[in-house]
Design a protein around this nucleic acid. Structure first.
Lengths: 108, 108
DNA sequence: AAACCATGTTAGATAACCTTCCAAACTTAT
DNA sequence: ATAAGTTTGGAAGGTTATCTAACATGGTTT
């Protein structure tokens, strides 16, 4: 259920690599986490682990920062985006649910 | 020209993560490199960097090892596979080249 | 028996990462 | 205009992660 997405969303990249991929400083990356723009996972020892999605997101963030937008407002934008997607998702799932009910499809 | 493949083949994963993803020991992973079954890149400081493709390959290797096949023979198999794919690739490119010549398609 | 294979383990060294703090240059709010 | 907040750099000190090289061992091949 829920397609693989395995590569893009798997948290496997350490901060040094993210630095190299994005051109941001580690300081910046940690700061954007502090401002809750990104949410890396942690290794057992405490090292941050990022996904390719995170890397892409960081590149978007870097652009917005360059345009003078503050982290606070970037976060707002992101939450708005998020909400929109969630709504679409809910709508899609509701329709699916109605179809299932209508035609008596069963899981398992 | 050559599709993205960006995620699957990009060398961004350190050995500890590969250990966790594959269940192999670091010793084993390094040994398989020594036997030229995998080819991680290196960071400036000398740390190995693997791709998701490498991770998949390692899982295949693990299975073969479990079946009692030796690294030497695994390598042979892999070279055979490689050669086959190269041939297919060459054939495909030749045909493409002939088509281009026939119909005078131009790059750029 | 000698050689090779595959893996574990240890030791010592270096690279990579972590948090916390201070500083500085800006920007926004009061 | 002063105060408060934002963003980033850098340093210090500490911990985790990785590296190579070497030795050990049990299993397999020659």
């Amino acid at each position: 259920m829920g397609k693989d997405q395995s590569y893009k969303d798997k948290k496997v990249i350490t901060i040094g690599i993210v630095r190299d991929l994005t051109g941001l400083s580690e300081r910046q990356i940690r700061y954007y986490e502090e401002r809750r723009l990104i949410f890396p996972e942690r290794s057992a020892g405490g090292s941050r682990k990022f996904s390719f999605s995170d890397v892409e997101l960081l590149m978007d963030i870097a652009n917005k920062i360059e345009d003078g937008i503050q982290t606070h407002d970037i976060r707002k934008e992101m939450l708005r985006e998020q909400k929109k997607h969630n709504q679409e998702d809910v709508r899609r799932k509701m329709i699916q649910g109605q179809l299932n009910a209508q035609f008596g499809l069963r899981k398992k």
